[in-house]
Simulated scan of single mutants.
Amino acid sequence: MSFTLAICSEMVYTGLPHLERVERIHSAGFAVEIWDWTQKDAAALAATGAQFTSMTGYTTGDLITPDGADDLVRTMHQSIPFAQQIACPSLNLHGTGLGEGGIPLLPVEVVTGDMWLAAVRTLERVAELGERHGITCVLENLNTQVDHPGTPFGKAADTLALVAAVGSPHLKMNLDLYHAQIGEGNLVELIRRAVPHVGEVQVADVPGRCEPGTGEVRWTFVAQALAEAGYDGVVAMEAFAADPSSAGSDRALEAFRAAFTV
Rank of each mutant, 00 (worst) to 15 (best):
H148W: 13
T14S: 14
F30A: 08
Y13C: 14
G68P: 00
E100C: 07
S168C: 04
A229C: 08
A204C: 09
V222G: 06
T136D: 02
I25N: 05
G154A: 12
H18T: 09
G68N: 02
G95E: 01
A42V: 07
G167H: 07
C8W: 14
R21E: 15
L139A: 02
D158F: 11
M11Q: 11
L98V: 13
A229H: 09
L175G: 01
G213V: 10
T4D: 10
I103C: 05
Q78H: 07
P212N: 10
P149E: 11
R121H: 01
T65H: 02
H94T: 00
L187N: 05
R192H: 14
F52S: 05
D250C: 10
P17R: 10
P152H: 03
L190M: 13
D36C: 04
L16Q: 13
R192W: 13
E200I: 12
R21L: 15
E238Q: 11
L19E: 08
V32E: 11
I135N: 03
C88S: 06
E20K: 12
V12K: 02
L142I: 04
L93W: 00
L117Y: 06
T151R: 02
E140M: 02
I34Q: 03
F240N: 06
A118F: 00
E23A: 14
T75P: 00
R74Q: 02
I103A: 14
G99A: 12
D147Q: 06
D158A: 15
L160M: 13
G248Q: 05
E10V: 08
H77S: 03
R132T: 07
T38Q: 10
E140P: 01
G154E: 04
F256R: 07
H197C: 03
G233I: 11
T59L: 00
T151A: 11
Q181W: 07
H179Y: 12
V195T: 08
S245K: 07
V146T: 09
D114H: 03
V146C: 11
R125V: 01
A50V: 05
A46Y: 03
L253I: 12
E216F: 05
V235Y: 14
T4L: 15
N92E: 03
P212R: 10
V12E: 07
L142E: 02
P196G: 06
S27L: 14
M115K: 01
Q78C: 05
P207Y: 14
G97H: 02
G213N: 08
T151C: 14
Y58G: 01
E228D: 13
P107N: 10
